[in-house]
């Protein structure tokens, strides 16, 4: 791994602090609040995601015009767009069922731990189990695809 700027990790940490404080302030770190939104009992929650998307959208649009590259990495301000395929729909639907059952998503789960919600460790354990299961299965599928088809 290339040597990184000494401020690289501290800056990531500061960004995480602000991010986590915001998730806690918004109550998105509370599963009850997410479930109340999903049942149309409190429609405030979209202000979190879309408020954040507007701020990040302004940053993503302006920064490439101000500087050529990020100061701590030298990397250009790219838009790292994800390719579309069936997995986006299947994965999105599976995530949707999980979010609707539990009321918690990954970032909010980390923040939930920070506000004292020890019970959320159940959700974090589940997320690691799920991430491991799909990674294990897909790694094996990838290996099968790239293996020489000697049997034929």
């Amino acid at each position: 791994m290339p040597d990184r700027h000494p401020l690289f990790k501290p800056l990531i940490f500061v960004g995480g602090l602000i991010f986590g404080f915001g998730l806690a302030f918004s109550h998105m770190a509370r599963p009850e609040v997410v479930l109340n939104f999903l049942q149309f009992e409190d429609l405030g929650l979209p202000f979190v995601m879309f408020g954040a998307a507007i701020v990040s959208g302004i940053g993503f649009a302006l920064l490439p015009r101000i500087r050529d590259a990020a100061p701590l990495t030298g990397d250009p301000y790219d838009r790292r767009l994800k390719s579309f395929d069936r997995n986006v729909l299947v994965g999105g639907a599976v995530f949707g069922v999980g979010w609707g059952v539990s009321g918690i998503c990954p970032g909010a789960a980390y923040a939930s731990l920070g506000i004292g919600n020890v019970t959320i460790l159940w959700a974090l354990a589940g997320m690691f189990v799920g991430a491991y299961a799909q990674g294990y299965w897909r790694s094996r599928a990838d290996a099968r695809e790239s293996a020489p088809t000697s049997a034929d």
Binding site: F19, P31, M49, A52, K82, N87, V88, L89, V90, G91, G92, A93, V94, F95, G96, V97, G98, W99, G100, V101, S102, G103, I104, C105, P106, G107, A108, A109, T119, I120, W122, A123, L124, A125, G126, M127, F128, V129, G130, A131, Y132, A133, Q134, G135, R138
Partner: peptide, 21 residues
């Protein structure tokens, strides 16, 4: 609900290339 839903969140966010953030 947290554990069962969490499993599906773990599968779905990684298969679907991203989560709420």
């Amino acid at each position: 609900r947290l554990f069962g839903g969490g499993i599906l969140v773990g599968i779905g966010t990684r298969l679907g290339k991203g989560c709420t953030s």
